[in-house]
Design a protein around this nucleic acid. Structure first.
Lengths: 134, 134
DNA sequence: ATGAACCTTACCCACATGGTAAGGTCAAGC
DNA sequence: GCTTGACCTTACCATGTGGGTAAGGTTCAT
């Protein structure tokens, strides 16, 4: 199977598959005589694993670790859980930041007349907010 | 006022102030004979404006626009509001994505025994999720 | 044999920020 | 006057996850 078919089968782009190989996420595959990468069904499973982990926001470094654990029969699920919990904590941290942004943005937008005039609560807030944000 | 003092006064780093100037966010300042950038109190207000907008997640391109509007007495608050609403929509989109990640991560973590064994619901989910995520 | 569709590597770009290197400047203290 | 340390300058590299493009080789069907 060539890289284009592997990409279609896994939901990744051919570009990214090469990138993952370059980054050490994937073992270099066999090559055809012409140098084309050859993928086996087992490789497709690995690619799908990577795609699903990316959808969940895991970094490539995290995924490298998860892949190694996945392929290690001696693994401990405790380690896997730690990785996931650490990532969840980061996601929750970003959620907090975005929620704070959202709240302030909504407040500012609600206070903006949008009547075509020059007076603007949004610009006022950015110039001198009621409560300074550090 | 030198760049270090301007950085301290505005809450930005000297590095970023230079970067903003390089990007066209800031007008090049006066320079001392030795070539040091010189900042006036008015410049500090602009730097603080930028910092507050960054805290709210506005891109540098957005901030360039907001700064131009701020300094234009002929501005229309309608335009400002549009910029803010567009950014809010992006923030809300990211919030949705992160919330979906959070939910799935919590589910996977809850199902993981973490008893030191090799069986792991998290890896199972990544290998073959119950409901495929495209 | 030719053309389309695929593959290869190797670059540049985004985005905001940090780091580092190599060098110039200024002020304080001796 | 000289040293020292803190500051400033520019210029480059790195991050992380991709997208884009270029220049070229391969494969297959017509």
């Amino acid at each position: 199977m060539n890289i284009g078919q592997a990409a279609a089968a896994s939901g990744l782009s051919a570009k990214m598959i090469r990138h993952y190989e370059h980054n050490g996420l994937l073992q270099p595959t066999q090559r055809s005589e012409a140098g084309y990468r050859q993928y086996q069904p087992k490789d497709i499973e690995i690619l799908q694993f990577i795609r699903r982990a990316r959808v969940l926001g895991f970094s490539l470094a995290d995924i490298a670790g998860l892949l190694a654990l996945w392929q290690n029969p001696q693994r401990s699920n405790t380690v896997v859980k730690q990785v996931a919990q650490q990532h969840l904590a980061e996601v929750e941290q970003k959620l907090k930041e975005l929620q704070a942004m959202k709240q302030t943005l909504q407040l500012m937008i609600a206070q903006c007349a949008a009547d075509g005039g020059a007076h603007c609560a949004i610009l006022q807030h950015l110039a001198k907010p009621a409560a300074e944000v550090k």
